[in-house]
Computed example of a mutant assay.
Amino acid sequence: MELIEWNDFLKVELRVGRIVQATVFEKARKPAYILHVDFGEELGVRKSSAQITKLYQPDELIGKLVVAVVNFPKKQIGPIQSECLVTGFHNADGDVVLCVPDLDVPLGTKLL
Rank of each mutant, 00 (worst) to 15 (best):
K47G: 00
K47D: 07
K47Y: 06
K47H: 02
S48H: 05
S48M: 07
S48N: 11
S48V: 12
S49N: 04
S49I: 05
S49Q: 11
A50Q: 08
A50V: 02
A50E: 05
Q51D: 04
Q51M: 09
Q51V: 01
Q51I: 01
I52W: 00
I52G: 03
I52M: 03
T53G: 02
T53P: 04
T53E: 02
T53Q: 01
T53V: 14
T53N: 03
K54H: 10
K54I: 05
L55M: 09
Y56P: 03
Y56A: 05
Y56F: 12
P58G: 05
D59W: 07
D59I: 06
E60V: 07
E60C: 02
E60A: 05
E60S: 11
L61I: 12
L61S: 04
L61Y: 03
L61W: 01
I62V: 15
I62S: 06
K64G: 09
K64E: 13
L65H: 08
L65D: 04
L65G: 01
L65V: 12
L65S: 08
V66C: 02
V66F: 08
V66M: 00
V67D: 10
V67N: 04
V67C: 14
V67S: 07
V67M: 14
A68I: 12
A68K: 08
A68G: 08
V69F: 08
V69D: 01
V69H: 03
V69R: 14
V70F: 06
V70M: 13
V70I: 15
V70W: 08
N71W: 11
N71G: 12
N71D: 13
N71A: 12
N71C: 11
N71S: 11
N71H: 11
F72H: 13
F72V: 12
P73H: 00
P73I: 01
K74G: 08
K74L: 11
K74E: 15
K75G: 00
K75Y: 10
K75N: 11
Q76I: 12
Q76Y: 03
Q76L: 14
Q76K: 15
Q76S: 13
